[in-house]
Design a protein around this nucleic acid. Structure first.
Lengths: 340, 340
DNA sequence: TATTTTTGTTGAAACGTTTCAACATCTTTG
DNA sequence: CAAAGATGTTGAAACGTTTCAACAAAAATA
């Protein structure tokens, strides 16, 4: 591999100083520099096929133009969709994105932050896992710019962009009630993650406001990514002495497993059971009764996250906490219950 | 933001030279260094919360421990799944991955390569779009280590890891034939991408070997990401004077659009129409007749790609071209045709 | 005891940028 | 015609590492 050309090589070829080459290539001091010289320098640069050495530039400028994105799992369509939006937004501002998946593990998450900080990312976009509060505080102490997405910690003065989880769950639940459902089950993850707890609270809030006395047994909490537990939850909700007539799932992964299972049961949706869930999931489009779901404004989330982060990089240090409304997309899985 | 600590700061605090600090922190010359001194240095480093400045290190070592991943679209489950595997493999070798989506556009692709090269990635993993051959050759001339995935160019002596596309299409097609189908349609993209052409050839090859005289009208080529064209293709294949009794889709995106459309038609799968496609796609699991599909060995693809790339980084320069077998997962969309 | 080897440590250069301060030379101004 | 300003260019330092070559001091060998 022949050595890559440097500013010095260009300078030599064009018969000028390194300084001048740097100025020209960065379009600085344009009014001072002789047009002819500039042209000569550019010619030399392109002839040598010059490429800025970002490492050197970063060293000097203390900026990498790189952002770190930490999600739970990049192969989850929710996060890969978000990643795509963030990629585009970042690119339009000349930033590149490095990514990592935490798998909801605090330990993996910490390792990722560490790696990314070593790489001197200019900022981080993070969907924080459980128990990562301490880590987040540490970031704040280090004054590393970051913004949380999807999840947040209410008692942390950190920037975030999240869904109005309470309101969305509330809306989905009242929708089910208003369509004639009286006993509604919730399947959610057993977790400390506040966004999921908010969804649970929104569910409960709607039941209360509609004067529906719910039982604890209507709420099932399952371990993360445990298909069996999800199936068990569905079973027990459908086999109570007064079975539920509707189900709300607080995540796309739960919904997918649950619906796949329900699909194997002799249960008619929506006649016997209405369904609704969070997040658009292509998998649920082809179910015979496509699922009603809470649609998150992905584009806005991605855009807001990048904007907040870039603002912070400009040293504005105000706190921005964004809570965006979801949209309930009603489909046949929850249409009016004719058998009421 | 108080300045980040450097080796110099540690050296000062520990009362030693910068050199020694570097040696200790990199576990070099271990046998030469006094254990006590080393301990003092490590203590100072951790007290100061030291973090290697990767930019500086990269500048010196000419390595970034970063790989660039270019896919068609990170939000496509095929690529996000692959991304996840590559992320994990890379991380286990201490590499970080930056990613970008080409959207099948040669121009966007070129921009991505450019950005990544500016960032001095150590190597690239690329799913090249159409017409990117020149760009690829350019990479070779620059001696930038890279490996192609998913797609390849037969007349380019480049490393790649791909599916046995011909064989997989051949197997899927014979499977359809052997289950009683006589007129089989193919919907594929209108493209120069060889991996897709191979799939078409595998399809044709199977028909020929089974002595089925096919007509050109059985093969429909649609524009990339054009839902309408896909629906039109389905329509015209089903409305010929002798309609097809089976369909093979050469990609997950085509399959998803087509099945969603077929789902709205008064057509029974598999009784009236058998279906099969490439790639595992969760969306097709909940269709009332889950799709038979060619499963790509994702894990192996990701692993092989990383291994080849890292080999190249060690300066071994042999050519490695890997063609992996797919597995045909037969499901109800193509079960035996009882009405023959 | 004189020499060699081992142990422990260090100064300084280099990587490729950016950018400050300075310097000519030429042009304008009073 | 001297002073001031504009124009065009440059040397050198700095960013934080890594690593070569060198050097003492202590230990082992002759």
């Amino acid at each position: 591999m022949t050595k890559k050309p440097s500013l010095k090589d260009i300078a030599q070829k064009a018969g000028v100083s390194v300084t001048l080459v740097s100025y020209v290539l960065n379009n600085q001091k344009e009014n001072r520099i002789n047009k002819e010289t500039a042209k000569r320098i550019r010619a030399a640069a392109s002839k040598l096929n010059y490429r800025t050495n970002q490492a050197a530039r970063s060293l000097k400028t203390n900026k990498t133009l790189t952002l770190g994105l930490i999600v739970a799992d990049i192969s989850n369509p929710f996060f890969s969709g978000l990643a795509r939006i963030i990629e585009d937004e970042a690119a339009s501002m000349n930033y590149t994105v490095i990514f990592g998946s935490s798998d909801e593990s605090e330990e993996k998450y910490t390792r990722l932050v560490d790696t990314f900080l070593n790489r001197q990312v200019d900022g981080l976009i993070i969907a924080p896992p459980q128990n990562s509060e301490a880590q987040i505080k540490y970031l704040q102490k280090q004054r590393t710019p970051f913004v949380l997405i999807d999840r947040y910690f209410p008692d942390l003065k950190a920037d975030y962009v999240i869904l109005d989880n309470y309101g969305s769950a509330y809306d989905a639940t009242t929708h089910l009630i208003d369509n004639g459902r009286k006993k509604i089950g919730l399947i959610t993850y057993k977790t400390d993650l506040v966004h999921l707890i908010d969804r649970k609270l929104g569910f409960v809030g709607a039941l209360n406001d509609r004067k529906i006395k719910y039982k604890d047994t209507w709420i099932k909490e399952v371990a993360h990514n445990d298909r069996q537990e999800i199936e068990n939850a569905v079973d027990s909700l459908l086999n109570m002495n007064t079975p539920v007539d509707a189900l709300l799932f607080t995540s796309n992964t739960i919904a997918t497993y649950a619906v796949k299972y329900i699909n194997t049961l002799p249960i008619k949706v929506p006649e016997m059971l209405a369904l609704a869930c969070f997040d658009e999931t292509e998998a649920l489009d082809l179910f015979y009764a496509p699922l009603t779901y809470v649609k998150q404004p992905m584009q806005e989330i991605g855009r807001a996250a990048i904007n907040i982060l870039l603002e912070k990089l400009q040293n504005r240090s105000k706190l921005t906490q964004v809570r965006l409304k979801g949209e309930l997309i009603v489909r046949s899985s929850s249409r009016e219950n004719s058998s009421r």
